[in-house]
C-alpha cells in the first residue's frame, strides 16, 4: 500500500511536468485527486488494514495529497500567467504618441514676470498696492514734486483727458495715495500699467511698471542698496554685479540709477548692453522730503526710499526679446513660448 501511494505520487509528479496546457492539467487533477480519483480509490482499501498501520498510511496519504495539491496549484498558476503574458504581448500601443489633452493655454509673459517680482518683494517685506490708471495730475505730477512747466515732465510725455486728468505715466501716484491714507511704516510694491506718449522699438505707449516704497524711521541709502542688491541676487542670480550711479528724479533725492552686469554677455560687452557690460534696470532714490509735505509726514522723523522698473525691460532681458512691441501684438506664436 505504501509503495502504491509513493508510486502514485511519483508518477503524478512526472506527468505533471509533461503537461502543456491548463485543460489537461485540470483533467489530471480530477483523475488523481478528484472524488472518484486514483488517490481516493486507493484509500478505500484502507479499511482492510490494522488500525496501527491504518494511521501511518493515512498520514502518508494525507501528506501526499497536500503535496500534490500544491504542485497542481503552482503548475496552474504558471499556465495562467503564461497565457496572460501572451495576451499582453499582443496589446501593444505607441507610447510615444501625445496624450489625450483638451488644450492648455499660456499666461502672458508680462503677467508672469510681474507675479515673480511681486513674490520676490513680498518676501522682502513689501505689501501689494494698486491704484487707478486714469489719474489726477495732482497725484501723477504735483504731489510727486513735478510742478507744471517743469522740464522733468519732458521725461514722461503724457496723455491727457483734461487739464487735470491724465493717464498715469508711472505707478508712483499709488505711493502718494497710500501714504495719504496710512502712517509709516509704509512698505509697498505697486505694479501696473502705465502710459507715455511714445512708440518705437524700445517704447510702447502702454507698458508695465513695478515700483516700491519703504518709509520708516532711520531708512538710509545703504538700506536701499541692500534691498535692491537682495532683489537682484534673488531674481537674476547671486554673483550678478550691480552698480548704483547718481541720477535725477524729481521725487527722490539723492537719486540713483541701478545697472546690473549684462546678463547676455556677462559683462564683457555686447549689443544689448551697448558694449558697456552694464544694463540699466531700475531707477531709485531716497524719497524727496518735499513729498512728505504733500502727505503730512514729518521729514525730520521719517525717511524712505523708492524704486521703479519696467516689467518689459526685465522680461526682455530675461528672455532675450529684442522688440517691446511684441508684448502687445498678442501673436500666439509669441505668447506660447513662455
Amino acid at each position: 500500500m505504501i509503495n502504491k501511494l509513493i508510486s502514485l505520487k511519483e508518477e503524478t509528479i512526472k506527468s505533471l511536468g509533461d503537461l502543456s496546457d491548463q485543460k489537461s492539467l485540470s483533467e489530471m487533477r480530477t483523475r488523481v485527486l478528484g472524488r472518484k480519483g486514483e488517490l481516493t480509490t486507493l484509500l478505500r482499501t484502507l479499511k482492510d488494514f490494522q488500525p496501527e498501520e491504518r494511521s501511518a498510511i493515512g498520514k502518508l496519504a494525507n501528506e501526499i495529497k497536500v503535496d500534490l495539491e500544491s504542485r497542481f496549484d503552482s503548475r496552474e498558476k504558471f499556465f495562467i500567467e503564461e497565457l496572460e503574458q501572451r495576451d499582453l504581448e499582443k496589446e501593444f500601443i505607441d507610447v510615444t504618441l501625445p496624450g489625450r489633452r483638451h488644450g492648455f493655454g499660456k499666461l502672458h509673459v508680462l503677467n508672469v514676470v510681474t507675479a515673480e517680482l511681486i513674490e520676490v518683494f513680498s518676501g522682502l517685506g513689501f505689501q501689494l498696492a494698486e491704484g487707478p490708471e486714469v489719474e489726477l495730475d495732482y497725484y501723477n505730477f504735483e504731489a510727486l514734486n513735478i510742478p507744471k512747466d517743469h522740464p522733468a515732465r519732458d521725461m514722461q510725455d503724457t496723455f491727457y483727458f483734461s487739464e487735470n486728468v491724465v493717464l498715469r505715466t508711472h505707478t508712483s501716484p499709488v505711493q502718494i495715495r497710500t501714504m495719504e491714507k496710512s502712517r509709516p511704516p509704509v512698505r509697498i510694491i505697486c505694479p501696473g500699467k502705465v502710459y507715455r506718449r511714445d512708440a518705437d522699438i524700445t517704447h510702447s505707449p502702454m507698458f508695465m511698471q513695478i515700483e516700491g516704497l519703504w518709509v520708516d524711521r532711520h531708512v538710509s541709502l545703504a538700506d536701499l542698496k541692500g534691498v535692491l542688491t537682495a532683489f537682484v541676487e534673488e531674481y537674476f542670480g547671486v554673483g550678478i554685479g550691480l552698480r548704483f550711479r547718481p541720477s535725477f528724479f524729481p521725487f527722490t533725492e539723492p537719486s540713483a540709477e541701478v545697472d546690473i552686469q549684462c546678463v547676455i554677455c556677462g559683462g564683457s560687452g555686447c549689443r544689448t548692453c551697448s558694449f558697456t557690460g552694464w544694463l540699466e534696470i531700475l531707477g531709485s532714490g531716497m524719497v524727496d522730503p518735499a513729498l512728505y509735505g504733500f502727505v503730512g509726514y514729518d521729514p525730520e522723523v521719517y525717511s524712505g526710499f523708492a524704486f521703479g522698473m519696467g516689467i518689459e525691460r526685465i522680461a526682455m532681458l530675461k528672455y532675450g526679446i529684442p522688440d517691446i512691441r511684441s508684448f502687445y501684438e498678442n501673436d500666439v506664436r509669441f505668447l506660447r513660448q513662455f
Partner: peptide
C-alpha cells in the same frame, strides 16, 4: 490659471 487650463492663452492689449 484656470482659464489657461481650459486652453485659453492670455493676451494683454492696449487700454485705448
Amino acid at each position: 490659471e484656470i482659464m489657461k487650463s481650459s486652453g485659453f492663452n492670455e493676451i494683454v492689449s492696449m487700454s485705448f
